[in-house]
């Protein structure tokens, strides 16, 4: 009898340890995934993977998706979705290239992608709040087509290459930190935007209201929060970041091309979900989203180094998305059965 009791209390202790671990896995699980992938990559390619060149290459490649995912994350926190970010990116990029070709000055070229992105985002927000469309999916699916069509309209459907150096700076240049140590400027842009958005979400009243809307929109409404205005701001912010992303990609490719960012919204959403945000809103952190973008980048990098065909990369990213979310489901089930 006495033995039985000890046994019981021991299983209980083990369970409570598991329960106590859950918040940490919740917070750091995706960072663990990044670490595992880094170590695996290093073992597979010890010569190349950890070279400064390869690492900065990874960051250069993920920068525009990381910025796109950041905007998508803020939308997903409100339990929304923005399918138009890939097209918004293209429109912002193309508008810059077209105006550059027309001879506009550098300051204008640097502002244009933000204005284009913000405008598209605000229209999304107005559409879904004022027209009362049943789900953001509808409004932004429409916008996906509208912005892509507009991109082709303003460019005649052909790429434009050659941009002034200052416009390319953020997307293409490196910042020299020391002898042989350079970091891509785009990484700095990513870091600054993540820090600003992260602080905004945590410390601004509007930032907290964004989480509240995702947790329970009715609670937000009866607490006197202007839900519609907050949502318009959120979609505007998402569009603005898509514009920034377009500027980064324009810089990196030294061009504007009409098919830029085609399907990129799905990579952005993937990064957000892998990063631990909930599709039902109210959950997730910017650090997780960055890790999510990094997971996709690392996966692509190691598969490239291993000469795995690009089609297989796509298959594997799909597998990662499903696995990560499944692990999350398991974790929640373990959490709820013990509470």
């Amino acid at each position: 009898m006495a033995e039985q009791i000890t046994e019981l209390s021991e299983t209980k202790r083990a369970e409570s340890l598991r329960v106590r671990l859950i918040p940490y896995i919740d917070r750091y699980g995706v960072l663990l995934l990044v670490l595992v992938m880094g170590i695996t990559s290093y073992i597979l390619e010890p010569e190349v993977f950890l070279t400064w060149r390869n690492v900065s290459n990874i960051f250069r490649q993920i920068a525009f998706n990381a910025v796109l995912a950041l905007g998508e994350f803020v939308v997903i926190v409100t339990a929304g979705i923005d399918l138009s970010v890939g097209s918004t990116l293209a429109l912002a990029m193309m508008a810059t290239a077209v105006l550059s070709k027309a001879g506009y000055s550098v300051p204008i070229l640097l502002i244009v992608p933000f204005i284009v992105g913000a405008t598209v985002g605000i229209i999304n927000g107005l559409g879904l709040t004022k027209l009362r469309l049943p789900h953001p999916f509808i409004m932004t699916l429409g916008m996906l087509n509208i912005a892509r069509g507009a991109t082709n309209l303003i460019s005649g459907g052909v790429p434009i290459s050659g941009l002034p150096d200052p416009v390319r700076w953020m997307g293409a240049s490196d910042i020299k930190l020391g002898e042989g140590i350079e970091i891509p400027a785009s990484l700095l842009v990513v870091a600054i935007s993540y820090i600003i958005v992260g602080l905004f979400l945590h410390y601004a009243r509007t930032g907290r209201h964004i989480y509240a809307i995702g947790g329970n929109p009715q609670a937000a409404r009866v607490s006197g929060i202007n839900v519609d205005r907050t949502l318009i701001l959120v979609y505007g912010l998402c569009g603005t970041l898509a514009g920034l992303s377009g500027l980064l990609l324009a810089g990196r490719t030294n061009s504007g091309f009409p098919n830029a960012g085609l399907g990129q919204e799905l990579d952005a959403i993937s990064a957000v979900i892998i990063g631990g945000a909930s599709f039902f809103g109210g959950r997730g952190s910017v650090l997780g989203v960055f890790a999510g973008a990094l997971v996709i980048g690392l996966l692509r990098n190691i598969l490239n180094l291993q000469n795995v065909p690009v089609f297989w990369q796509q298959v594997l990213i799909g597998v990662v998305i499903i696995s990560v979310v499944y692990l999350d489901v398991l974790r929640r089930r373990a959490g709820s059965s013990n509470s």
């Binding site: 609670a219 009866v222 607490s223 109210g282």
Partner: peptide
Amino acid sequence: YQDLALAGNLRIDENIFLGRE
């Protein structure tokens, strides 16, 4: 409210001061 209108993802203090932080 009957359904309480609380945001489950936020802390207790955040719910109490929601909209009046």
